[in-house]
């Protein structure tokens, strides 16, 4: 059986990759995808800690992931709507070109 640190390692890798995607890519949708990736890395951690924790009958980790899934879905919907609205107004999806507020 695999150990807790394997899962933590994988989720750390996923989190950092998500962070890199968020910071590095130009396309606004990819920035959002990076955030989703980070959220999922955190979810994986929750489940791993729940499973390897001392009290897996308590189900708290699972419930937290359930709520986090719902929040992530809401976040994706609102984020994509914002991207769409920005695109309609300025016809760009490149986060570097959305610089109207730059002094």
């Amino acid at each position: 059986m695999d150990s807790l640190s394997d899962y933590l390692l994988l989720s750390a890798l996923l989190f950092s990759l998500g962070l890199c995607v968020t910071l590095v890519r130009r396309h606004a949708i990819l920035v959002l995808i990076g955030i989703e990736l980070m959220l999922n890395a955190a979810n994986l951690n929750f489940i791993a800690f729940w499973r390897f924790g001392p009290n897996p009958e308590a189900l708290d980790g699972l419930l937290f992931v359930l709520f986090s899934l719902a929040v992530a879905a809401a976040e994706a919907a609102v984020g994509l709507a914002l991207i769409l609205a920005v695109y309609r107004r300025y016809s760009v999806t490149d986060v570097e070109n959305i610089d109207e507020l730059k002094g």
Partner: peptide
Amino acid sequence: PYSRGSIAGLIVGGSVFAGL
């Protein structure tokens, strides 16, 4: 497809990974 500050982004991501 990468933004101008991509090197800085990679450094931040890498250091977060190292910290984790």
